[in-house]
Each structure stands twice: as C-alpha cells, then as structure tokens.
C-alpha cells in the first residue's frame, strides 16, 4: 500500500517517517517508533488506555491516524519525565493508584492534561476528567486520591 511522508515531534524529538494512510497514531507510535508504553485496550475509543497528548490535549491515539498528526507535538508516557518520575507518576506510586498497570500510562497522561488545565481540581472534576479512562483493577478511588495529591505536589513546587 502506498505511503505518505509525515513530520512530527514525539517526546521532543523530530520524527520523519513514511506511513500507510490507514495506520493509526497508536500503531505508529508502538510499531514504528517502539514506544510501547501507549497501550491498546479497545481500539474503539472507549477505554482511554492509548491516551497521548497531541499539542497539549489528551487524545485517543487509536482514533486518529498517524497522518493526522502531521506537524503535531506528541507526548507519550515515555516522554513525561526524564530519568525519574513526574509528580503525577510519584503520586500514583505513593497512593497505590495502579495494579496491573495496563491503563496506567493513559491514566497518568489524562491526569497530567487535567492538571495542566486545572491545577486544583475538585474530586468531582477529577472523576469527570478520568471518566474516559477505564480501569478494571483499582475501583478508581486510589487514582482519584493520587491525582489530588499530585495537584498538591505540583502546587507546592510552583
């Protein structure tokens, strides 16, 4: 199948590639760039496991094509922190906000996007923001606690 050239930024690095037009952004990140931290849980835009940031907004990478990301700035879980953990990741760790870990990259990035937009969300706002990310292990409570703790941690750092 014919390919299309694309240019984009992924985790701060310029990327040039030739992709088939039908390849999703998720498959491109995983299969072409080897960024397998982005997970596929449903491939129909419900579970949120494949959430990445595209130009700062949380996006389901299974629902857009790689060619649609032309010129975009993409952040995946691999690019969130340098060597250590980002405060959102630390908070998930401290508050047992993960079990099997499969939904975690998407959850962390969704929480990160929320806190970028709303540095001090209420519990209800946190739950609303996370409602598009399914977790089958935790019952969500510890994730909500972690996001609140991350908000405090980030506020303290400012």
């Amino acid at each position: 199948m014919a390919t299309v050239p694309i240019t984009l930024t992924v985790n701060g690095q310029a990327v040039r590639a030739e992709v088939e037009p039908r390849v999703t952004l998720a498959d491109f990140l995983r299969d072409e760039l080897g960024l397998t931290g982005t997970k596929l849980g449903c491939e129909h835009g419900v579970c949120g496991a494949c959430t990445v940031l595209v130009d700062g907004a949380a996006v389901r990478s299974c629902l857009i094509l790689a060619v649609q990301a032309e010129g975009a700035d993409v952040l995946t879980i691999e690019g969130l922190a340098g060597d250590g953990l980002h405060p959102v990741q630390e908070a998930f760790w401290e508050h047992h906000g993960l079990q099997c870990g499969f939904c975690t990259p998407g959850m962390v990035l969704t929480a990160y996007a929320l806190l970028q937009e709303r540095p001090s969300p209420s519990e209800e706002e946190i739950r609303e923001a996370l409602a598009g990310n399914l977790c089958r292990c935790t019952g969500y409570q510890n994730i909500v606690v972690a996001v609140r703790a991350a908000a405090e941690k980030l506020a303290g750092a400012r």
């Binding site: 596929l40 691999e78 990741q89 975690t104």
Partner: peptide, 19 residues
C-alpha cells in the same frame, strides 16, 4: 510498603505480550 514493581508500569517500560 509501596509496590516495588510500580516504576516500570508508571513509565511505560513494562512489557506486556503485545509489546
């Protein structure tokens, strides 16, 4: 005790079957 396995899940390094 905080879970010792968590960092690799939090950073996306953990390798599941598809990975």
């Amino acid at each position: 005790v905080k879970r010792v396995e968590d960092p690799r899940f939090l950073t996306g390094e953990a390798k599941y079957l598809a990975d």
